[in-house]
């Protein structure tokens, strides 16, 4: 009897409140980067956001958990991860007029399983001592940069995506040749992260490095790293031809999300003007939503042309890209 009463009252409670009081996020992004956004969401809706952050194995965890998974929302930093989730059928389609309107169609899955939230450019940083350079990704294999290039591991998702875009443009054979050329030009074995390369430029170890756009802004806002950033120019490659390589950070609703309505509410919030503005200001990323202003700093880097290659194509070439990186022994 008591059980029944509890059951019925629970039923009533859930049907009356529009949202469950919690939403669970599996995040490939560090929690503290997205925390301010989540806090704002909680403030507005009263829905508590629970986060678990991991870079490796999130998709497998979700897969193993299956229908009992507590995950509602999946947050990623790279298109390939989104496509991986989509291909493993770990996402469910979301039909939301709000999202349709907020997010340009090239940043949405055709089946509405994932949505891009921000874009980031794979820039080429160059030492100020080089003066203004007009550079293409292809130039990184040019002998004139022999011993002058620094990069993080070729197998980092950001670099793999860039290599994929090279495959889409030039085919496998030429891309392999390019990789071997870049490898031969490296000042040191691939190591560290994107900021570490700029630090190396600052120290004179190399002249050119690959790095995502927002790191430039973050370094400028960091007391210790500002001097590194001051020593480099941020370049948008391939402006005279196909445009700079762009990747997205994105989001999707888990297939078995126990709090689906809250999950959609959270994603709609992340695509809202307010949240997009926060992404732009605090994380120095490019908001996907039209009409949202870039941060002043990011805007000062100027307008640029981005590669129109569909995101799905980048994900499609991912494995080939990895193979080529192995063949070129890029990281060894």
């Amino acid at each position: 009897m008591i059980k029944k009463i509890i059951g019925i009252s629970a039923l009533i409670a859930t049907s009356f409140s529009t949202f469950a009081s919690e939403v669970n996020v599996y995040s490939y992004r560090q929690a503290f980067l997205v925390e301010p956004l989540f806090n704002e969401f909680t403030k507005q809706t009263g829905v508590k956001v629970n986060v678990v952050f991991a870079k490796k194995g999130m998709a497998e965890r979700l897969e193993r958990e299956g229908e009992h998974s507590p995950a509602d929302v999946l947050l990623t930093t790279d298109i390939s991860r989104l496509i991986e989730l989509q291909e493993k059928s770990l996402l469910q389609p979301v039909n939301s007029a709000v999202l349709e309107q907020a997010i340009p169609s090239q940043f949405q899955a055709d089946d509405n399983t994932w949505f891009g939230l921000t874009t980031r450019v794979r820039n080429i940083y160059s030492a100020k001592r080089l003066g203004n350079v007009d550079i293409n990704y292809e130039d990184l294999a040019d002998v004139k940069y022999k011993g002058k290039i620094c990069t993080r591991s070729g197998k980092h998702p950001y670099n793999v995506a860039l290599v994929s875009s090279m495959i889409a443009e030039h085919g496998e054979a030429k891309t392999l040749e390019w990789l071997k050329g870049v490898k031969a030009n490296l000042a040191r074995k691939p190591q560290g992260n994107d900021r570490g390369q700029v630090q190396a430029i600052h120290q004179g170890l190399c002249d050119v490095s690959l790095g995502n756009s927002y790191y430039f802004g973050k370094m400028i806002n960091n007391d210790k790293q500002k001097v590194w950033a001051d020593g480099v120019n941020i370049n948008f490659p391939n402006q005279a031809n196909r445009g700079a390589h762009v990747n997205i950070s994105g989001v999707g609703v888990a297939k078995y999300a126990p709090n689906k309505s809250s999950a959609i509410a959270l994603i709609e919030f992340l695509a809202s003007e307010q949240a997009q503005q926060m992404y732009a200001e605090t994380n120095m990323e490019y908001p996907v939503r039209a009409g949202v202003k870039k941060s002043e700093l990011v805007a000062s880097w100027g307008e640029f042309k981005s590669d129109a290659l569909p995101l799905e194509t980048i994900a499609k070439h991912r494995k080939t890209a990895l193979k080529l990186l192995d063949q070129a022994q890029f990281d060894l």
């Binding site: 986060v51 678990v52 952050f53 991991a54 870079k55 490796k56 194995g57 507590p70």
Partner: peptide, 10 residues
């Protein structure tokens, strides 16, 4: 690494 992947929310 094991904690990172196995841990519950928060």
């Amino acid at each position: 690494p094991a904690v990172l992947l196995l841990r519950p929310f928060n």
